[in-house]
Design a protein around this nucleic acid. Structure first.
Lengths: 255, 255
DNA sequence: TCGTGAAATTGATCCGTGTCAACGGCTCGG
DNA sequence: CCGAGCCGTTGACACGGATCAATTTCACGA
């Protein structure tokens, strides 16, 4: 099996094919609900079957070991996000880490099964979800390629605000599910430097931080500090319009 | 139409459905052969139909404008690579740039057409190709997240060696299709700094450079200078084993 | 053959981030 | 209530890459 729980074996319940996907009356895919506690890990290996994970709840972090003991966060997963194991290169210690308590749904997509007409809707839905994921991935790459560290933090805060927060007038606030060190790793920055950047943003009045709660008094001002804000907002809007992408996280989970 | 030629309108010939994909007797996908001259550009916009490009020949570069006039290379495409427009976020001046003369094949993949049984083999092939592309993309992200610039260049040279060169005993040599500025952009480095790094690598005896020709006297020595070498080699080996992934570039093009 | 312009290299300098250390605040358990 | 330990912050300093400018190399055309 490609995915298994290494530390604190997750509470895994096989809720066989009870989840109703949008635009689908009968889903023949085997799916498994996986519940993760904070800091719990899922090991990924890049071979074998194609497992697709849907994040129903919580936030995760894809980490890998790059150079000796050095570990790096390559990707963040938010509710509604999708993740396929085939898209991941084989690297040492490649694993998903739950930043908060998480509900995942795991689909096993085997090429031979997929020829059935009944599974087309779910596959079509996955295509859309993957397109979104790939586009966001590319935006993150564009972000960390940015030499100015302030821009990277601006991009990250806009991303977090879009996926974790809700607009409230001109302001917006959200709970960061990640530790500073994880954020720093995601932004290819030193934790100390990241802390300084946070301080700088606070001094500029762009954000107010209480523990892990981030409050953005003026969303548009923050967006002006993020070079990729326009592209990310556009992408989030596309996702909101896509049918069944977000809704599935609410309806498909068995009680 | 999502893809069009902006500068020096490409010589586009509609070779309707003559290309035979591996494991496929009849391909109903509309496909178009696109021939690009060096430095020619293809504009990409993230909406509309899903166009999939297969690089039959040559090398390309995906560029976008990130911040004002700043442009950045987000991705390199080598022969056998695949590229879908839906995977790209909407950003200003997002375009493919031909580094050399290129042959592309463009498939238009519409979700409704895709339900036909006859098109399953080609879709399955695309799945494999996309998985490879995504994995390589992630490796590149891991590479540019590396704070040490030498590592980035090492990773790049290994990638280029794997996809552009062939082993010749312990050595390996290849022609870099990209200008220094483009490589620097891809590695999120200053061109001046990149030049210094090349000099350092030459002094260490890792490479010999004649114009754009790179000769690696000892491949394993170069790999030791690349933190991601193992993962990239593993990935390239997987691709070589995948059926019809590389072969298609040779057989599918009409004479 | 020479001249021109673009690309690449190299040098000098500045600034920003990494590094290491110390400090402060918060949580949890005794 | 106190103490331990972790996380986050801040300061001092060094180093590496960015920047700007000057020079060399190469390709191409007259």
């Amino acid at each position: 099996m490609m995915i298994n729980c290494r530390i604190n074996m997750a509470q895994v319940r096989n809720e066989c094919a009870t989840a109703a996907m949008p635009h689908t009356e009968a889903v023949k895919f085997a799916n498994v609900r996986i519940v993760l506690q904070p800091e719990q890990r899922l090991a990924i290996t890049g071979t074998g079957d194609n497992h697709v994970f849907l994040v129903a709840n919580g936030a995760l972090l894809l980490e890998a070991q790059v150079h000796g003991e050095q570990r790096r966060a390559l990707e963040l997963l938010f509710p509604g996000d999708i993740f396929a194991t085939v898209d991941v290169p084989r690297m040492p210690a490649m694993l998903l880490i739950a930043a908060t308590a998480c509900d995942l749904i795991r689909y096993t997509v085997s090429p031979v099964d997929a020829s059935s007409q009944a599974e087309w809707p779910i596959l079509a839905w996955m295509q859309t979800a993957f397109a979104h994921r790939n586009a966001r991935r590319m935006l993150h790459y564009a972000s960390i390629a940015e030499p100015v560290a302030e821009h990277r933090l601006g991009d990250f805060l806009v991303e977090a605000g879009l996926y974790l927060g809700h607009p409230n007038g001109a302001s917006r606030s959200f709970e960061l599910p990640f530790a500073r060190e994880q954020i720093a790793s995601y932004l290819a920055l030193n934790p100390d430097t990241l802390s300084r950047l946070f301080t700088r943003f606070k001094q500029r009045g762009l954000i107010a931080v209480a523990r892990r709660r981030v409050t953005v008094p003026c969303w548009t001002a923050l967006c002006q500090a993020s070079p990729l804000a326009d592209a990310m907002i556009d992408l989030a809007a596309q996702r909101a319009k896509a049918p069944g992408l977000l809704q599935v996280t609410e309806h498909s989970l068995p009680a």
